[in-house]
Amino acid sequence: MSGAEHALRRISAVRGVRGAMLVSAPDGLVVSESSMEDVDGRAIAALAASLAGRLRRAAGGAGLGRPTVIQLRGETGTLLAVPAGEELLVVAVGDRETNLGLARLELLEAARGIA
């Protein structure tokens, strides 16, 4: 098992996380994924990369530098995305019960290992 796959499995093991994946940031395509339940992995990759790209431009305009963690919270779940270098994003989707603090740490750890 590659380092990336191992990292994705660790993220998926966090309570409430429905799946995790590695995404090509410029293309919005799946690079690698782990146990995505009931969600179209291609949709996650495309939408997370698009949102991350727009937020990168907005954060730059606000003088905040590059985003390090992005967290989109909805009524029934959360999307987490962490850039891993210039080209990749580590992304996870969780339900309402997700331990977001732990998931965030695992994503950051995965991104450090991959970048």
């Binding site: 937020l55 606000a62 905040l64 963690v69 992005i70 967290q71 919270r73």
Partner: peptide
């Protein structure tokens, strides 16, 4: 939407 960035 939460965005943690380098400088803020």
């Amino acid at each position: 939407l939460g965005i943690e960035c380098e400088y803020g």
